[in-house]
Design a protein around this nucleic acid. Structure first.
Lengths: 325, 325
DNA sequence: TTGTAGGCGTTATCAC
DNA sequence: GTGATAACGCCTACAA
């Protein structure tokens, strides 16, 4: 910066002003500085700026290291709008390590705020974060403390989906998912129960299954051997549903003739499966975008807010419907 | 830090030492400082550390804002090993904006090094980066300047795949991809030509198609109306192949009876398509991991290196083979 | 409009 | 081992 200042014949304060976008500089001076900066190939130093302004210009997002379209989609939306708001995005996967709490706390010193997915971080740590005045927005889990939160509507769509299955005549519906480890799954389970109750159908327990294809296949294989076997599988995610589909194929079951299967998320491939998967669409990118916006608001001093985005039942053929495609 | 120092009855220098992991501190003192730090809930400040050490503890990765399993998979692998090496990961999508060059240059002041995907950044900018002594590793594109590079083997597998199609009796094979905008696609095209030449089959031009399902569908629809129509579609990515599959279905073509289709990447759903997709597997996470490792080496002062990871032909049914599943 | 100078929170180089 | 005390590179009152 001193180099540029000398080159342009001004003080570093002036250089700082024009490069920092401060308007109160004579146009002529500004131009001269800009030219000098370009001449010496100078750029403001991120760390020094951060230290002086107490602003990192970066937000962090903590997610479980699961692959799959869900996280990718949300993070993509998040990155895009964060970028539009002038914030970079730092990602941190908590590979279920125990030290992840420390990781998050340290991360907090490198960013202006955090977006936390589902159950990646314990309530204790969240409280700690909030106590440190770190703006936090939670994604896909019920709000806590004074942190913002954005999520997709779960309960109503789960009820609608269940009702749809009941209309197809299914009475033994198995729920594949893990309400205890995922707030989203918990709400979907609730909605499922709501619909069963309305219809006066006997309720059963969820078949615990993580959000992964392999687990879906494993759990479905067990469930389908039960007698009497369920005639429909309500899966808490499309990936579980894909695994379930594989398990069904292993047993020689035809979908949807012998068994109906539904998913959740409407990941891109859902429509290409055989048969196309009936599922519930979540606005992935929009979830991320809202999270970025809410976090930005929080960083700017705004109070906590909540947003619940609508979801949409996507009826295709795996539930037994005859849909033109 | 002053607070902790006072609390522990030592100087900030000592506090800095124990929290920074400097071993030359008496064990007893260390414990006292640690206790004090915990007592006041103190953590080292990222920005200040970065400024003082000239190390950000962060690497950046620049990618085109495409969704899809490819980027997600690579980034996941990258994040994981970077984390293991003590580096955070900053992501930046260049949504094909023209200002992306500036974005990258600015990003460079907030990180210790950059991983650049394919053609996200112009050669000029790369040169600029290298000139600034910013460690750079390129992913999926031929090496340039004195930057490291990691990629997956393309040419040989493309030749093998083409040869396989020829064995099935296909002579009119259309290549869907864009060799000009993607170095990976270019190499696959080369390999394709290699095999055609060896077999003495007439070569044609590639059918330009971006790495997206929608484009695959659109381009395939055109290609399949050509007369004589191709009997096989060699797609530069699984996503293109999926789009092509949809286009084929629109025309009432049966796969692989009327038309063979192959993809590239072996994304998770490839095996679940109807019929299961013959494709080439790339070690996504491994690509990311290697990139992180090479970048780390570069940051530590090492010179540029190159790595080419092996790929694997995955024969399933869309090419016409009868595979047990 | 522009310049001066103190401060942001650590690390690192010296002495002790 | 431990403690002063300069940097590190920028921002921002405050003064001119």
């Amino acid at each position: 910066m001193y180099t540029v200042a000398r080159h342009a014949g001004v003080s570093i304060a002036t250089v700082s002003r024009v490069l920092g976008g401060d308007r109160r500089v004579r146009a002529q001076t500004e131009e001269r500085v800009l030219a000098s900066a370009r001449a010496v190939g100078y750029r403001l130093n991120g760390a020094a700026r951060a230290l002086a302004t107490q602003r990192q210009g970066t937000i962090g997002v903590v997610f479980p290291n699961l692959s799959g379209p869900y996280y990718a989609g949300v993070i993509l939306g998040l990155e895009e709008t964060a970028n539009g708001l002038g914030q970079s995005v730092l990602i941190a996967g908590t590979q279920d390590r125990p030290e992840s709490e420390i990781l998050v706390l340290d991360l907090a010193t490198k960013v202006d705020g955090l977006v936390l997915f589902g159950r990646t971080v314990s309530d204790i740590t969240i409280a700690e974060l909030v106590g440190r005045r770190v703006p936090v927005v939670m994604l896909g889990r019920p709000p806590v403390a004074s942190a913002s939160s954005v999520r997709a509507e779960n309960r109503r769509s789960a009820a609608a989906l269940t009702a749809h299955l009941l209309e197809h005549g299914h009475e033994r519906i198995a729920f594949l998912g893990d309400p205890r480890s995922s707030p989203d799954a918990a709400e979907r389970w609730e909605g499922h129960l709501d619909a069963l109750q309305v219809a006066g159908v006997e309720q059963r327990l969820p078949d615990v299954c993580a959000f992964r294809e392999a687990d879906g296949r494993r759990v479905a294989a067990q469930v389908l051997r039960r007698r009497p076997a369920p005639t429909a599988l309500l899966c808490a995610s499309d990936e579980i549903a894909m695994g379930a589909g594989a398990a069904a194929a292993d047993l020689g079951l035809r979908i949807p003739l012998d068994l109906a299967i539904t998913g959740w998320d409407d990941i891109p491939v859902a429509r290409h499966l055989a048969p196309p998967l009936t599922t519930v669409r979540q606005p992935l990118a929009e979830l991320g975008a809202r999270a970025a916006a809410l976090l930005h608001a929080g960083i700017e001093g705004g109070g906590p807010e909540e947003a619940t985005l609508p979801t949409e039942l996507v009826v295709r053929r795996s539930c037994g419907c005859e849909v033109p495609s």
